[in-house]
Design a protein around this nucleic acid. Sequence first.
DNA 1: TTGTAGACTTGGAAAAATATTG
DNA 2: CAATATTTTTCCAAGTCTACAA
Length: 503
Amino acid sequence: MLDHEYTTKKVFRENFFKDWRKEMTRQERLVITDLEKCDFRELHAFHKDKVEARKALSKEEKQDQKDANQKIVDKYGYCLLDSHRERIGNFKLEPPGLFRGRGEHPKQGMLKKRIQPEDVIINCSKEATPPAPPAGHHWKEVRHDNTVTWLASWTENVQGSIKYIMLNANSKLKGEKDWEKYEVARKLKSCVDSIRDGYLRDLKSKQMVARQRAVALYFIDKLALRAGNEKEEGETADTVGCCSLRVEHITLHDELDGSECVVEFDFLGKDSIRYYNKVPVIKKVFKNIKLFMESKDPGDELFDRLNTALLNKHLSSLMPDLTAKVFRTYNASITLQQQLRQLTNKSDNVAEKLLSYNRANRAVAILCNHQRAPPKTFEQSMANLHSKIVARKEQLALAKTELKLAKKEMKTKDGPDSKLMVDRKAAAVKRCEDQLLKMELQATDREENKQIALGTSKLNYLDPRISVAWCKNMDVPIEKIYNKTQREKFAWAIDMTEADFEF
DNA sequence: TTGTAGACTTGGAAAAATATTG
DNA sequence: CAATATTTTTCCAAGTCTACAA
């Protein structure tokens, strides 16, 4: 923790010291008055040594550790739901530590306290025997609420929010909800045209609310922006979504880079990830935004008459279960389907098809603004890959000359042995070519993926049935696109999807 | 009608596990 | 086999949205 950048931040240090002092004895409080004078290096080294010691364990000792951990998972990692044994997602409660938060969080550095049994609510069926609290302790409460899915909960002290113990993504319960989510998004597909007509019409409405709602919807639909709930000031980092956009977050250009009516977005979204985009919009939208911005300060809300509740209420009147985030799911999934159709050829080999799949996935990640910090080892790993490619090219050249030589020999000698030799050399050339192609595709993929995070869209936005159907159509094994965990999570889709599935 | 607690999904970083390489 | 690179898992914060109370 000491070597992390956030320990140098003023807010972090102040919050930490304030909370630390609360934990001190009177004596300690008298002595420890200035964080600048505190030297934590010994403590830091102690923890580092511990990590090192664990790394240095022998093979057997590591196996013992692993077995012991597995026993804990076997014992505590499962629950019984409707008499089915289901894996729990997070069966360990969160240990104490210093709250970090993301971006410029006003509470960073605060002490996250240890959870006591007295803080924990257990939720189980009436018939079940609740787990016994640790000796000498009691639970905060044992309740039997079958309208919620959580098994245990506690209130976290930094934000005052409730934390839950819930089921793993591969559980029947989560799988069904996932399926429902995508079915709602598919329903949107069938009425999205009329909804689009509707908000385009509303751009000219007499009512300001309707106009603002229309422009917000235009953004949400076209740019896959999040809804943007209002947040309590000073409690969290200053981030926004669509409805909470402020005047300072957009710049209008009547003309930019050869396009007319360009809106330039620059704001911090969820997790303080920057959203930067220059988008040509239709004239009516552009004029409306100009109107909304009139006589406002940079810090004022762009959509001053609108909030997410209002927006979602309107959406639910257009289609049952329709909310702002359904547009993200719908646009993500439909984009994947379109891109896969556009980019993949049945005649490509598997490596080429996988590059196309990743590119389609990437198009979605870009739409949803899923970014990552470039891996620290990116340049190095790229260089390694390129040198491997060079080496393989040399090997290929060598294999080719050997093949030529063998062919020549076959002409002069013409025996079964020399024929065999030619076949063998030809196979070597083929193998080499395949490997080279695969590496080159891998290099392209990695380069394009430098700052893009594919995981979130793959896990949360892309209807897995699109991918399963694609695999079937393209003769790509499902293991090539989903690892074991992902296959478990998407088991419902893998089981039920035929090659002709259409989102 | 509005505000808020509560429940659940979404999100990237970091740690841990595993695969690859020298 | 150890060191290193890559993939998978864990972690927990931060969103969305609903239900319910005032």
